[in-house]
Amino acid sequence: MLRVEAAEKSFDGFKAVNRANLVVEEGAIVAVIGPNGAGKTTLFNLIAGIHKPDTGKILFQGENICGLAPYDICRRGIARAFQIANIFHRLTVFENVQVSVLSQQRKSGVLFRPAQNLAVEETNSILASTGLLNKARRVAGTLSHGDQRILEMAIALGSQPRLLILDEPTAGMSPEETTVTMELVKHLSQARGLTILFCEHDMDIVFSVAQSIMVMQHGQTIIQGEPEEVRQNEQVQEAYLGGALSLSKETSDA
């Protein structure tokens, strides 16, 4: 469904993404992991069109989407939830999702029909499936952090994507919120048949949810494979756990 081939992107000479490869099959849950600064967020920005890759290809359903504007990429079926709660603070929760649904239905430009009667069913169904329905009338800026992150995801769902990209969906959440969120992700994948691409720091989550894992370091893809395969890979152990291992060795030496 999505295929990134040898994508590269540098900022002021620093190669944030350097020959990254990624394959996402239809219906799968794919995780990207890697230490801080490995280029995960930049890679997502490349896919979502916020940055244009210097070289390489990004194919979505066989079509090269490199260099398209973010709104154009969204219309092709890729939606993205951000690492920070990137919502519309002054609008209500309902309106937050509705804006996204209206955009998907190409009704954003409709001038003379009251918005409150449009796309209500679709919006409510998304709010219901994300558990925000009882907060629909609240102004989004007043929600708790966890709820804002879920709203963030709900906005992404509003564009009825085929591929949903989540950038650290549980960052900054309490353990309870984390569990709820990951259950939601699994549910979305099963119930809606969504393809999901996410990155995450919490390895327990990654290995329990993802069907395929891609490991990045210094902007480069080390490996992509099934969780077990990745776990066994020596290079990954060295790269990802290497720091920790050597550190523990040093302390034991001392």
């Binding site: 916020i50 973010p70 969204c74 939606a79 519309f88 955009s103 906005i155």
Partner: peptide, 11 residues
């Protein structure tokens, strides 16, 4: 409220 987010939902 959030132009960047708008782009991301296809506006």
């Amino acid at each position: 409220d959030n132009p960047q987010r708008c782009e991301a939902v296809g506006i």
